[in-house]
């Protein structure tokens, strides 16, 4: 069998995953926590990338799936389910939500859709707060503690995040060559044109949002298990979505490696530089969004791609 670029890319992903898996043996508590956060945000950004980068639907409120996954796992675990039995719920519940709500919401175009998703996130936070009972309401939910020693538990959580991230990157790669990815890129450019070319645009959009929700929800589920206590304001924190957005923009919308690169850069910057400017953190974040949008509208990945491969002369 010939070795193609595909094989090399897969090999690279496996090697990178294994290298990332070895990190806990080198890092102590703080840096492992940072690495886990990077992987978590990379997953959330991967999820955002599917609906925004591929389909062009700006789901500003995608955090709703993060919270939904976190709550699904927490409620199940408090009902006596094991972690491994609960984790699939963190994937299925958000996916179902996206499937059901995608039908009406994805009919909205442009900023109407974006605003609707923001409202959806706020509505869910409120719903969970008001529901009380098994959601814990405004008091939040504490999760059953693991029997494992903290270091071991944190390592496992980190490994889980990295494994899920690897799967998400693989799914994004698969999407980029699958007909669904082509359909999404086509409808991003021109939705009615895509429909006339025989693309079932409604189903394609809903599928994309379901994949996006599954990724985001898994990150939320593992996150809940990691921090062992969740409340509406932390699980449905809109800032999660905002950060993922910046990461996606920095890395490169609609690219495969973009989410990972964006998450890596932003979180590392955050840890190394912004820790020095605690008060100005948000201001700097805002400036970075503006600077990225102005200077790097396509993100880093397309920039690197252009640098590596000189432009074909267009005859």
């Amino acid at each position: 069998m010939m070795i193609t670029r595909t094989h090399l890319a897969l090999l690279g992903l496996v090697a990178l995953t294994l290298a990332a898996m070895a990190l806990p043996f080198l890092l102590d508590g703080y840096w492992l926590r940072l690495a886990t956060t990077i992987a978590m945000f990379a997953i959330v950004t991967c999820g955002l990338n599917v609906i925004v980068g591929f389909a062009g639907y700006h789901a500003f409120g995608n955090t709703v799936f993060f919270g939904c996954g976190a709550y699904a796992l927490s409620i199940a675990m408090n009902a006596g389910w094991s972690f491994s039995a609960s984790l699939p719920l963190a994937l299925l519940a958000p996916m179902l939500l996206a499937g059901l709500l995608g039908w009406p919401l994805l009919r909205l175009k442009g900023h109407y859709f974006a605003i609707a998703t923001v409202a959806l996130n706020l509505a869910f936070a409120e719903l969970v707060t008001q529901a009380g009972g098994f959601t814990g309401g405004a008091n939040g939910i504490a999760l059953p503690l693991s029997d494992l020693a903290p270091q071991i538990a944190y390592r496992r959580i980190y490994w889980m995040m990295v494994a899920v991230l690897a799967v998400c990157i693989a799914v994004t790669w698969w999407l980029s060559r699958h007909w669904l990815g082509t359909a999404l890129r086509a409808l991003k450019d021109n939705e009615s044109g895509a429909e006339v070319m025989g693309i079932d645009t409604v189903s394609a959009k809903i599928l994309a949002w379901m994949i996006s929700a599954a990724m985001t929800g898994l990150a939320g589920g593992i996150w809940a298990y990691w921090i062992t206590f969740i409340e509406p304001s932390s699980a449905f924190d809109p800032l999660i979505g905002v950060k993922a957005y910046i990461m996606m923009l920095i890395g490169g919308m609609g690219t495969i490696a973009g989410p990972l690169i964006g998450a890596l850069l932003l979180e590392l910057f955050g840890a190394l530089i912004w820790a020095q400017f605690l008060d100005l953190h948000r201001l700097l974040l805002g400036c970075l969004i503006v600077a990225t949008a102005l200077a790097l509208p396509g993100g880093i990945v397309p920039l690197v791609r252009r640098a590596l491969r000189p432009a074909r002369p267009a005859r």
Binding site: W179, T182, A183, A186, A194, M197, G198, I199
Partner: peptide, 9 residues
């Protein structure tokens, strides 16, 4: 052109 070929049936 491939989009047409892919989705039209």
């Amino acid at each position: 052109a491939a989009v047409g070929a892919t989705f039209a049936s």
